[in-house]
Write a protein that binds this DNA or RNA. Structure first.
Lengths: 340, 340
DNA sequence: TTGAAAGCGCTAACAA
DNA sequence: TTGTTAGCGCTTTCAA
């Protein structure tokens, strides 16, 4: 910057002001132009480390996700990055693999890099790290999942609404024995979707015995396949299953296929999330679409609000939409011509 | 750090030495212990900005990819991050959306953040930005794609080998009229796979007229669907198509489905990449598996080599593997029982 | 083996 | 409107 100032014939303090949008107003228009021209000519790129050291702001935010290769997260991350980039921020992304220690480790590493705040997609309902982060005054926004105690602003999908829509669809088709392959009870999405399911069963006068809830230890195909297998090997298997997410649904479909049981002919399957490509599997998956990009974008905006001292909403619940495809039909019937 | 030094009863210079693995050897063992204990007790987290300002090293690398929501890239990014994290580095990820200006913009933004180097998955065969980066002495490693002129070390898949394997498979099944839905000619993967295809056609004594190459403007479903439609609407459509990547293949499958043409019964389809979930589509896609996580991990390691002054290999070509699934069978025959 | 001190590049409070 | 100056937190050279 000294070079720029020299070339423009001003003091570097002035150059700094001219180059910074917030302070450019304090500088004579012509001078500012001159400085900016000089900067351009010299290919000046401000040193973020120096700025950050001085201002205690890094214009960087940490993003913690379980695993980037889980197709659920890329759209969320893109949503976050798109909003951040526009505001001159960048994201530092870290994968925790659902490992608490790794999460703590990455969180500290990001703090050391002076991130201004965090967007966390790894929230568990009870979350010691987050309790501590709150005490430390960290700026955090939760996305997709939330904590039981409202520690931080969160942006989540309308999980209960999605379950209700899916149940309305299945019951409307005539299903009475519907099982729920629930996600982990330790995370909000798993718990909320499961309790919404139980509520629907009650509300609609279905039998709680016929409508079982099986808890999957993880949101993945392996767990879904195993749970579905258990269900099929038990007595009076259901005619429809509502799955905690699409990965579990994919596992359920696999279990069905392995046993030669037709879907949706014999058993209908509903997923949750509408992650990429579930419209291309066979049968195309009926699922609840969650606006993941929006989720991320909103979360980022909420964090920026906080960082700029604007009051941030405590909880945003984004609407979901049931997408009916080929994996659901009337019970015991033949597949409808709905698959793609 | 002053606090730590005070608590340990040493000068902050000494504290710095004690806390830094590289210089801890210069400090009396007992003193070092004392300092480290003090740091732990105070929950000391070093300020990366200050360190970076002083050392001109940020322990941060920029990662440029076209689009994180393209399922090809998350595994690459994870590979990069896994290696970087272990070495105490973090990745700053930016999406370019294949837009040259956006790429330049993000590249400069990352430079301003003092990244120590770059891993680029966005290389085009001719790449002005990279020529300039070379001139500027930037540390860069290319992944997945490469440039025509060997500007920087690259880690790519054995594209030609993959095409050869796929062709051997198709010809072995009896196909003689095989088309190639090529990716963009402007990127190395598109060009190399297409020229390998042409070479195979010649080598195997197939007719260059029967074995057309259609160039898709982008690596996506829309382009693949359109190209396949053109092929089917033309004269003497092929009995098999080798696609530039899986997304193009998915588009081709869609075009087939829309016309009620059986795959693999009437037309066999082969993809490239083996991206997640292509084993779950209908029919399960025969494709060439590229080790994406490895690609990313190697690229990161190569960059770290460069940053540490170790000589880095100029070009790593990682082996690929043909994965035969349900989308290929003998020409004009009925589908084999190979689908899953 | 440790202490002292300079300085990385920038911003902002203060003075002119 | 501009110049001056101190200092953000750290590393590293030099001296002791």
């Amino acid at each position: 910057m000294s070079d720029v100032a020299r070339l423009a014939g001003v003091h570097k303090g002035t150059a700094s002001r001219a180059l910074n949008p917030d302070t450019a107003g304090q500088v004579n228009g012509a001078t500012a132009q001159r400085v900016q021209a000089a900067a351009r000519r010299l290919g000046y790129v401000p040193n973020a480390a120096a700025r950050s050291l001085r201002t205690h702001r890094s214009h960087t935010v940490g993003v913690l996700i379980p695993d980037l290769t889980n197709p659920l997260f890329p759209p969320i991350v893109r949503g976050i990055e798109d909003v951040l980039a526009e505001a001159g921020y960048t994201a530092l992304i870290a994968n925790t693999d659902n490992d608490e220690e790794r999460e703590r480790d990455r969180f500290e590493a990001l703090r050391g890099r002076q991130v201004d705040g965090f967007v966390l997609a790894t929230a568990r309902r009870e979350h010691a790290l987050l309790e501590r982060a709150l005490a430390d005054g960290a700026r955090v926004v939760l996305v997709n999942r939330s904590t039981d105690r409202r520690l931080f602003p969160s942006v989540v999908a309308d999980d209960a609404g999605g379950v209700a829509d899916a149940m309305a669809h299945l019951v409307g088709l005539g299903h009475r024995r519907i099982a729920h392959l629930a996600g982990p009870a330790s995370v909000s999405t798993g718990a909320i979707r499961a309790s919404a399911f139980r509520r629907c069963v009650k509300t609609r006068g279905l039998s709680a015995v016929d409508c079982r809830v099986l808890s999957c230890p993880g949101y993945n195909e392996v767990a879904g396949r195993r749970a579905m297998a258990d269900l099929l090997d038990g007595e009076a298997p259901p005619t429809a299953v509502l799955c905690g997410n699409d990965l579990i649904a994919l596992g359920a479909l696999r279990a069905l296929r392995e046993r030669g049981i037709a879907c949706p002919g014999a058993v209908s399957v509903v997923g949750f999330n509408d992650m990429p490509f579930v419209d291309e599997v066979q049968p195309a998956l009926t699922t609840v679409r969650v606006p993941h990009h929006d989720l991320g974008a909103r979360a980022a905006r909420l964090l920026l609000d906080q960082l700029d001292g604007r009051p941030a909403a405590k909880l945003s619940r984004l609407p979901v939409e049931l997408v009916v495809r080929g994996s659901t039909s009337v019970p015991g019937g033949t597949p409808l011509g709905r698959r793609r």
